[in-house]
């Protein structure tokens, strides 16, 4: 195919992305420097919003909460997704199909329905999880009533919906040439050796990308359970940054300042993503033939 002409087929996507992603991004960058409440035109306020942001303890605490939840949830999610993918990659037939479907299934449950489910599972009086923990004599963290209990509750809600990462890991695993596994099998390598010295290192660039993508996913996915399950509480213990943005924009109507918060969130995410992305690019470069 001659490249130039085929490229035009991407135009609808570019226009759509412009409308719902690029234009809003640009607008956010502008609104972040304005007072805007949605009734009158935005009024330029210079760096006022940013000065307010710097002193906004609630925002920085929410960033901390988001960071903590992500720092716990992302490794668990990646381990689950990649672990399932490696176990299932060579599993064909009915068992493989059932395993793949099961691993993806939680991800097709609507977020709100998922949240309702966990609202019950974690409930101190009626919930099966506290009941099960009591039954085996384990300590029961107050999943909806204590700050750390609520954060762990949030992590649990986030841990299962890893379908996208699972599928990407599955596809990545299948790009590793079979001959490499034959070569290592002839050398007498154990499954553990093969996984840690061949599979994971070869997949490393993609795993890093997955980690970054998952960070983004967790930050946004934490919103619904934080809104519906923990309500940001107790005492703002699960008030994540997106929830704060939402409250500022749609409950207080401070669209200007909410834009400032959005842009700050974007910048912070980019900063957190930069190192893994850079590493991934370097590793991919090394392996490329």
């Amino acid at each position: 195919m001659r490249g130039a002409r085929a490229g035009w087929l991407g135009l609808p996507f570019l226009l759509g992305a412009f409308l719902v992603v690029l234009l809003p991004l640009g607008l956010a960058a502008y609104l972040a420097f304005t007072d805007y409440y949605g009734f009158e035109a935005p009024r330029w306020s210079g760096t006022d919003n940013w000065a307010r942001l710097a002193g906004d303890g609630q925002f920085w605490r929410s960033v901390g909460v988001t960071g903590v939840v992500a720092a716990i949830a992302v490794p668990i999610r990646i381990a689950l997704a990649v672990g399932a993918a490696l176990l299932l990659a060579r599993q064909g037939g009915a068992a493989g199909a059932i395993g793949r479907t099961a691993a993806y299934l939680p991800s097709v449950v609507p977020e709100a329905a998922w949240a309702l489910l966990w609202l019950w599972i974690l409930n101190p009086l009626y919930g099966p999880l506290p009941a099960a923990l009591r039954a085996v004599g384990a300590p029961v963290p107050g999943f909806l009533t204590e700050p750390w209990g609520a954060r762990w509750g949030l992590v649990l809600v986030l841990a299962f919906q890893v379908g996208e990462a699972f599928v990407v890991a599955l596809a990545a695993r299948r790009t590793v040439p079979g001959a490499l596994y034959d070569a290592l099998a002839v050398e007498g390598a154990s499954p553990w050796f093969t996984t840690t010295r061949l599979t994971l290192p070869v997949m490393a660039p993609i795993l890093l990308l997955l980690t970054v993508r998952d960070l983004v996913v967790v930050v946004q996915n934490a919103f619904v359970p934080a809104l519906l399950v923990t309500g940001g509480g107790p005492g703002n213990a699960t008030l994540t940054a997106p929830l704060l943005v939402y409250e500022r924009a749609f409950e207080y109507g401070e669209l200007g300042y909410a834009s400032t918060l959005s842009v700050a969130l974007l910048v912070l995410t980019a900063a957190a993503a930069a190192l893994p992305l850079w590493l991934a690019a370097r590793l991919a470069q090394r392996q490329r033939r």
Partner: peptide, 26 residues
Amino acid sequence: AMVFQDAALYPHLSVAGNIGLGERAR
């Protein structure tokens, strides 16, 4: 021991790593 078509070298390892990986596995 076996030598494969297209060499089947491990893309993430240096030449030394490629030659030595089997020894490490053993």
